[in-house]
Nucleic acid binder design. Structure first.
Lengths: 232, 232
DNA sequence: ACTCTAAGTTGCAGTTGCTGCAAATTGCCT
DNA sequence: AGGCAATTTGCAGCAACTGCAACTTAGAGT
């Protein structure tokens, strides 16, 4: 009667909401099961059972078993951040680029538990970490483009030919790939050490995995001091 | 009669030789089939058929279908090179490290055709390239150790505490990962462009894929000029 | 030359990830 | 209520991969 949802918007989200909900449920099931039994000892059917969906539906949601564990979030670059990156004051290219790439990290309103659990899984199963990094490489070209643009600032006054542009693009590509390596390094530091059993004290665990910002600044600092080494 | 192989050495190699021979035969079959039909349209049974072995034997030789395509060569670090790297004159850490890692490249007495074919496959199927890079990451720790040792040269005179060592190790790790990224960049440049059909002129093709040494020096040069950019 | 043993090969059956297809179900709109 | 379209599901099937037991071969001893 009065509570009939005449509002279209509410119902319009219903499908989408439900989808997102089950998706999350499946991810959680997958992650917890893998943490308990190990990747190889978890079958898709198990995950389905715990999530209350059929196997066929599972594969409607996720392309592969791995995908369900890693999560389906699309690591796309935010438009605003991109502009900010290009226009930013010019003395911190590397740190800025690293920050830009850190979009993998825990995002606004994300399930904290799920995130750290995944981190733990990455520590236990390098193959999955690999998969995650592969996703990163997919945005390589986007980032390269941004770095290219940023490198081009200030050069506008001078005459620039194709060779210059190509060279700068090469630089951008090189830098991007190198920074991707640094990002991997950062991620590795982030992963909790193997076989450190979850202590009774939750606070201790939270201390073990630093914030994104912390990791970032620490890595940047290390990078700075490393680049200043005389013998290259 | 007279040709009876009394010599033990000749026969002693027989087993090993045969193994290596069939291994190579399988790799060749796999590569050529994939080039012809694409990765997904090639079954293990096809490869077995063309290689004259049973499927079961196939999996005795290679852990996975992918492994057969990218080859089973263990990318381990040569002992001699390792020493040379540590003791080398100190102004070229990055180039030297990159050279060290280039062990992926075509090795002494390797099938040239097979190598370039694989390169082409990598261009067509990024997933396989990915697999190849994953192998690289497995030697990360070895290389890190070497870089660590090299960074430590000359510091012997001064007093060094644990913190210093840990810091240096961090630097080595960071550098290694970054260089791994650069290596990936180099490998990508190396891959022949997609859909450039094999021309009738073989020489043109050979010109398309530069030597390891060429790629290496070019990359090093680019790296140098990039690192000298003022804005980091 | 003959045999014996261990290494290597194969067939077979079974598990698991994953896909296409068509039927059943569900959600939403009129 | 009725109907349309999106989801979900069951089923059948393919391909990668594994364990096991039987078989074949190579190399060493006698």
């Amino acid at each position: 009667m009065t509570d009939t949802p005449t509002s279209t918007t509410m119902r319009a989200q219903s499908r989408e909401n439900k989808h997102h909900a089950t998706s999350l449920r499946v991810e959680r099931s997958a992650v917890s099961l893998v943490l308990e039994h190990g990747f190889d000892n978890v079958t898709v059917d198990m995950i389905c059972g715990q999530s209350g969906i059929s196997q066929r539906t599972f594969f409607n949601y996720f392309k592969t078993k791995k995908a369900a564990i890693i999560g389906a979030e699309p690591p796309t670059i935010d438009e605003g951040r991109a502009r900010a990156f290009i226009a930013a004051p010019g003395d911190d290219l590397l740190p800025d680029a690293l920050t830009l790439m850190s979009a993998i990290g825990p995002r606004e309103g994300m399930d904290e538990q799920l995130f750290t659990d995944r981190l733990r899984i990455f520590g236990l199963h390098p193959e999955l970490m690999q998969e995650q990094m592969e996703r990163m490489t997919r945005v390589t070209s986007e980032i390269t483009e941004l770095v290219y643009l940023r490198l081009g600032r200030g050069a506008v006054t001078e005459v620039e030919n194709d060779a210059d542009r190509a060279f700068r693009h090469g630089q951008a590509e090189l830098l991007t790939h190198a920074m991707l390596g640094v990002l991997r390094f950062m991620a590795l530091q982030w992963i909790p050490d193997f076989e450190r059993p979850v202590g009774a004290d939750g606070a201790a665990d939270r201390a073990a995995t630093p914030t994104l910002a912390e990791s970032l600044s620490r890595t940047v600092e290390l990078l700075r001091r490393t680049l200043s080494i005389p013998g290259l």
